[in-house]
Every structure is written in structure tokens, then in C-alpha cells.
């Protein structure tokens, strides 16, 4: 690919779309809003096309795996069967498609998500080991916040809610705002670097 295609075209596309999106937010110019709406529609159309090409690429990739009987090729067969089943049922019997989604996909997803509960416990154990002063502060704050959400503590020790709410409203709020400002500044910095052509991570 030539230098012009590699670097200049993505940069121009980024600069034009970025400036239009930014300026339409600040300026009361109807033309800019219209162009921005149009661009958003383009994104939807391009995404749909990308989905189509993705489907073709997926079929070619898994088709090759099945033809060459590579290891795990049965998974590719399952993929084709599931895909065809869903595709046909969405047109022939929509209620069956809903059944497949609600009774197979959703419970499987929920089962995976349930694993996070166990991971949460071990993660909390890891986090609460007081190794240094930072971890001690973290554990102290977390214990008070857990007490806030367990109503029994508020009955036994009403002061816990006061301390926990103070932690949430004062140090937590201040730190959160600091993080938000830092991210916002970093965002502007990256946008400017991309506009000037110094940041090229998005082009590979």
C-alpha cells in the first residue's frame, strides 16, 4: 500500500468527521447538525455491510477448518448448525428462534456470568490483604461501605452509615472527579495528536 493511502486518507477522514462532530455540538449551525446526522447514518450502513462481509469471512474460515479436518473442527460444525438453525427459524418460525435465544443462549450466558461471583470472592480476598498503607485504606473504606449496604449494621451502629456516606461523598467524589478530568485531558491530547498525524495506533 502506498504512503498516501496508508497515512493521509485515514487522517483526512478522521479530521473531517472529528471536526464536524465537535463543531455541531458547540455551534448553532443547522448545516453541521444535518451533516452529523447523515454521517451517523453512514456509520450504520457501513456497520451493516461490515457485518455481511464478516459473515462471509466467518463461513470461509470455518469452512476451511472443516474441509481440512483441523483440530476442533467439530466446533466449527456446531457453529454452522447453530447459525443455520437460528437463520432459518427467524424466518420460518420466529417463536422457535425466541425459544432458542431465551432458553439456550440466555441461560448459558447467565451461567458464565455466575462464575464472576466466585471470582469476586477470591478477588476481594486478594484485595483485602493489607500489604501496605494503600491497601489498608482501601480495606478500611470497603468495610464501611459493606456495612452501609448491610442494614443490620445501621441498626447496631448508626454511625457506620455516616462514615460510609462521608467516604462516598467526600474522598470518593473528589478522586472520581480528578480521574474524570484526567481522562478528559488525555482524550483531548490524543485527539490533537491524531489530528496532527502523530498518533497512528488506529491505522495499525
Amino acid at each position: 500500500m502506498s504512503w498516501v493511502r496508508r497515512r493521509e486518507i485515514p487522517l483526512i477522514i478522521f479530521a473531517v468527521t472529528f471536526l464536524i462532530s465537535l463543531l455541531q455540538y458547540y455551534l448553532a449551525v443547522p448545516f453541521l447538525s444535518e451533516v452529523n446526522t447523515e454521517m451517523t447514518n453512514w456509520v450504520l450502513i457501513m456497520s451493516t455491510f461490515a457485518l455481511g462481509t464478516g459473515l462471509i469471512a466467518l463461513c470461509i474460515y470455518h469452512g476451511k477448518i472443516i474441509m481440512q479436518k483441523k483440530s476442533g473442527y467439530f466446533v466449527s460444525i456446531i457453529l454452522f448448525i447453530s447459525m443455520l438453525m437460528l437463520f432459518i427459524s427467524y424466518y420460518a418460525a420466529p417463536s422457535f428462534a425466541d425459544y432458542l435465544y431465551n432458553e439456550i443462549y440466555t441461560p448459558l450466558s447467565i451461567a458464565i456470568i455466575c462464575f464472576t461471583a466466585f471470582y469476586n470472592y477470591t478477588a476481594i480476598y486478594r484485595a483485602f490483604r493489607v500489604r501496605n498503607i494503600d491497601a489498608a485504606v482501601f480495606a478500611f473504606a470497603a468495610v464501611f461501605l459493606m456495612m452501609l449496604y448491610a442494614p443490620i449494621f445501621e441498626v447496631i451502629l448508626p454511625q457506620t452509615a455516616t462514615v460510609a456516606n462521608w467516604i462516598l461523598d467526600v474522598p470518593n467524589m473528589g478522586a472520581s472527579r480528578g480521574v474524570i478530568i484526567g481522562v478528559a485531558l488525555g482524550t483531548i491530547a490524543i485527539a490533537v495528536r491524531v489530528l496532527l498525524g502523530y498518533e497512528r495506533a488506529y491505522t495499525g
Binding site: R126, A127, V179, G182, G186, I190
Partner: peptide, 16 residues
């Protein structure tokens, strides 16, 4: 809490 080294917010953005 879980990583050996953590980058918070802008630290990540200046990482490059």
C-alpha cells in the same frame, strides 16, 4: 487491587 501494577486514568493515556 488485582493487578501487580495499575495505571489509573491519565497514566494509561500518557503510556504511549
Amino acid at each position: 487491587s488485582l493487578c501487580d501494577y495499575g495505571l489509573i486514568a491519565e497514566e494509561l493515556l500518557v503510556a504511549g
